[in-house]
């Protein structure tokens, strides 16, 4: 007879504080993310110059006290471009997570509750999942042109099926619960059952899933830029910086490695945060993962 943890009585803030102490990695990841978000927001005020300013003279200068991260082959300041790149990366992560979670939630709920549509929807999702995500995105970008919006949509589409499957699985298991049957028996209408009894069960796993989607989206965005199918080259994204620095890698490795490692750090922080949230919000899955 185990009593489940409740967030109702004691202070939520205190509980999170206690959680941070017991999960130091999650706390560190949270701090890193906050720093990155602040850096992205405050980029113009952090000793940066115009990220697109081409400067012929100091080309490929290694990192130094004057230019912390050095400059690239066009003489652009790498520190500046890294900070502005954070804007793109974080924005893509956020947008893709929001879009794929909300669309996936909608489609998953429909699929889980309308048996007739279910078969069709799930076959389409199986089909979408069989197309390797990066290739699907490459295909979408190459027929619709590379812009920030199309790239974001192209990254969102392959993420949707996983969310749909997750939501559908939850819906199918929750609708078997006696408390849902009891709600049916007392005459609660289907939309209200979905809202009251099913949706609250989807929220914690979806928050966790959202962090993983964001991490994977940031990765895909960089890969697309790196392969030349991402945001237009004039946008200073981390992927574009690396794609351009590739040719001069043997002479000026920092042009690739600095945005690369920043990207890795950002994704790592999001992933670790996701694991922490999972432990906090979804202990049933956490025990298994």
């Amino acid at each position: 007879m185990q009593s489940r943890s409740s967030t109702t009585d004691t202070g939520t803030l205190a509980k999170w504080g206690q959680f941070c102490r017991s999960h130091p990695f999650t706390a560190v990841a949270g701090v890193i993310l906050i720093v990155l978000v602040l850096a992205a927001l405050l980029a113009p005020y952090l000793g940066t110059v115009d990220p697109r300013k081409i400067n012929i003279l100091p080309r490929m200068r290694p990192p130094s006290p004057q230019a912390w991260f050095g400059s690239d082959q066009l003489g652009r300041d790498v520190w500046t471009r890294t900070l502005y790149g954070a804007r793109i990366s974080l924005m893509v992560g956020l947008m893709v997570a929001l879009m794929s979670i909300s669309l996936g939630l909608l489609i998953g709920m429909i699929s889980g509750y309308m048996r007739k549509l279910d078969a069709v929807i799930m076959r389409v999702m199986d089909g979408l999942m069989s197309i390797p995500g990066i290739l699907l995105a490459i295909g979408l970008v190459s027929v619709s042109g590379a812009s920030f919006i199309t790239v974001t949509i192209a990254i969102t589409v392959p993420e949707i099926p996983r969310v749909v499957r997750l939501v559908r699985a939850i819906v199918l298991s929750v609708r078997e619960e006696p408390y849902v049957e009891a709600a049916i028996a007392v005459g609660t209408k289907t939309p209200l059952i979905l809202w009251r009894h099913v949706l609250p069960n989807c929220v914690p796993p979806l928050i966790v899933q959202a962090t993983y989607v964001a991490a994977s989206a940031m990765l895909t965005e960089a890969l697309l830029s790196f392969l030349g199918a991402g945001t237009p080259p004039e946008i200073p994204s981390w992927g574009n910086m690396m794609a351009e620095g590739r040719i001069v890698f043997p002479i000026a490795p920092w042009i690739v490695l600095i945005p690369g490692c920043t990207l890795a750090l950002a994704i790592l922080a999001v992933n670790v945060l996701g694991d922490g949230l999972r432990d906090r919000l979804d202990p049933k899955i956490a025990k298994r993962m």
Binding site: R4, E177, P178, Y179, E181, A182, A183, A185, V186, G187, K189, R196, H197, P200, N201
Partner: peptide, 22 residues
């Protein structure tokens, strides 16, 4: 729906027949 009032059910598992979040 109007007949739902007439028939009510009590289920076997006391731990799953009430929504834990409500």
């Amino acid at each position: 729906r109007k007949h739902r009032k007439t028939v009510q059910v009590i289920f076997q598992d006391p731990f799953r027949s009430l929504n834990p979040r409500r």
